[in-house]
Amino acid sequence: MIPFLDLKAQYTSIKSEVDAAVLGVLASAQYVLGEEVARFEQEFASYCRVEHAIAVNTGTSALHLALLAAGVGPGDEVITVPFTFVATVSAICYTGATPVFVDIEPTTFTMDPAKLEAAITPRTKAIMPVHLYGQMADMDTIMEIAELYGIAVIEDACQAHGAGYKGQRAGSIGMAGCFSFYPGKNLGACGEAGMIVTNNAAEAQAMRMMRDWGQSRRYEHLVKGFNYRMDAIQGAVLRVKLRHLDAWTDARRAHAARYSELLRGLETALTPVEAAGRRHVYHIYAVRCRDRENLHRSLTEAGIQAGFHYPIPVHLQAAHQDLGHRAGDFPFAEEASRTLLSLPIYPEMTAEQIGQVAAVMEQDVYAS
């Protein structure tokens, strides 16, 4: 069996460090926020090359608070993409704003800046590009358009820990960047956790209050807030894992290069593209398939786990029928949802395992 992701192998490789960190929190009896979370905030801010980091309980909460800090509320519009995990859009809806979609680029699967300006209206309050699968969107063009219209940019970097764009880290370019530490992410907690990063001190302070019931200090509630606090065990575990993230990223990139090398000989293969000036961290290694279901079946029969990210774009989800979209509205997003298959990729994979996956694919036929 080749799993899609092997969290047990990751834990085994750093077990002594993780166990010590967790036991330290238990001994301190400081279970919510506290010193471990504060230190992780400092370390993650440094990693992202920003001034401030605000730890929260999920990536969705991070997106929600960043939008609120940007002043997004009822009657506003936020532009994003339909090819993403539904949390991107849910966070917009939490504020009372309306999600407005633009299609993706067909090669990077990130926001197509050429379609962005046409989607802007007087109600547009923010733009939320998604750094999908571990590759950043075309941030120069997006920022140029946003600055022209005076619109805030919030990076959904929930899949892009350590990804790069022309030497800049994911989350450091827009007004704020939002990360998820869901266990399967490149930097994953032992449970749920998230983070917002920003260079704006006032907005950082506002988000710190909102995550903790709007308190400036205990029992003084200056604004309406939420219970979005990170627990200390997650902060401690993530501090340990952050020290290994660059090595894990190097391994992912090496595995992706090996996959692409092995699959290049197949005339019908379409492997992921790393755009010029970007550093892909391969949270997902997705190939485009002519007959995805057949290939998925072949891999499953060979004991290889593969997945679909994401088989139904958000604009066609039943939960968002109220937005009024139909099939055909965003053709590249819809094509990606029909044709992409995610192959196993994680730092602990071996060259032999990658070869086994490629060998099964070589016996099958897939194409764009």
Rank of each mutant, 00 (worst) to 15 (best):
residue 172 S to E: 10
residue 184 G to A: 15
residue 196 I to L: 01
residue 181 F to I: 13
residue 173 I to E: 02
residue 188 G to I: 04
residue 182 Y to G: 09
residue 203 E to K: 07
residue 204 A to V: 04
residue 181 F to N: 07
residue 191 G to T: 08
residue 200 N to K: 02
residue 173 I to A: 10
residue 209 M to L: 08
residue 205 Q to N: 15
residue 183 P to G: 02
residue 195 M to C: 14
residue 200 N to F: 00
residue 174 G to R: 06
residue 177 G to A: 08
residue 198 T to K: 02
residue 203 E to N: 11
residue 175 M to R: 13
residue 200 N to T: 12
residue 189 A to T: 15
residue 195 M to P: 11
residue 190 C to M: 12
residue 173 I to S: 06
residue 181 F to G: 02
residue 205 Q to V: 08
residue 175 M to P: 13
residue 209 M to I: 07
residue 191 G to W: 01
residue 188 G to Y: 00
residue 179 F to C: 07
residue 204 A to D: 12
residue 187 L to K: 00
residue 185 K to Y: 15
residue 196 I to T: 06
residue 199 N to F: 03
residue 208 R to H: 15
residue 180 S to T: 04
residue 184 G to M: 09
residue 202 A to S: 07
residue 209 M to W: 02
residue 177 G to R: 01
residue 189 A to W: 01
residue 208 R to G: 09
residue 197 V to R: 06
residue 204 A to M: 03
residue 182 Y to F: 09
residue 180 S to E: 08
residue 172 S to V: 05
residue 179 F to Y: 10
residue 208 R to C: 13
residue 172 S to C: 09
residue 180 S to N: 10
residue 204 A to Q: 04
residue 194 G to Y: 08
residue 193 A to K: 04
residue 182 Y to V: 07
residue 195 M to T: 12
residue 193 A to S: 14
residue 200 N to A: 05
residue 188 G to R: 00
residue 197 V to S: 09
residue 199 N to H: 03
residue 209 M to P: 09
residue 209 M to E: 09
residue 180 S to M: 02
residue 191 G to H: 01
residue 209 M to G: 11
residue 198 T to P: 05
residue 196 I to K: 00
residue 190 C to A: 14
residue 182 Y to M: 10
residue 172 S to D: 08
residue 198 T to I: 01
residue 174 G to W: 05
residue 197 V to H: 10
residue 180 S to V: 06
residue 187 L to T: 03
residue 194 G to M: 08
residue 202 A to Q: 11
residue 205 Q to K: 11
residue 183 P to R: 02
residue 188 G to D: 06
residue 182 Y to K: 03
residue 178 C to Q: 09
residue 203 E to Y: 04
residue 202 A to C: 08
residue 192 E to Q: 13
residue 184 G to E: 11
residue 180 S to L: 12
residue 172 S to N: 03
residue 202 A to R: 05
residue 172 S to T: 04
residue 189 A to K: 08
residue 190 C to F: 15
residue 187 L to Y: 00
residue 175 M to A: 14
residue 175 M to K: 09
residue 177 G to S: 08
residue 187 L to R: 01
residue 206 A to P: 10
residue 205 Q to H: 12
residue 205 Q to T: 06
residue 185 K to R: 12
residue 177 G to L: 04
residue 194 G to A: 08
residue 200 N to Q: 11
residue 188 G to T: 06
residue 206 A to C: 11
residue 174 G to Y: 02
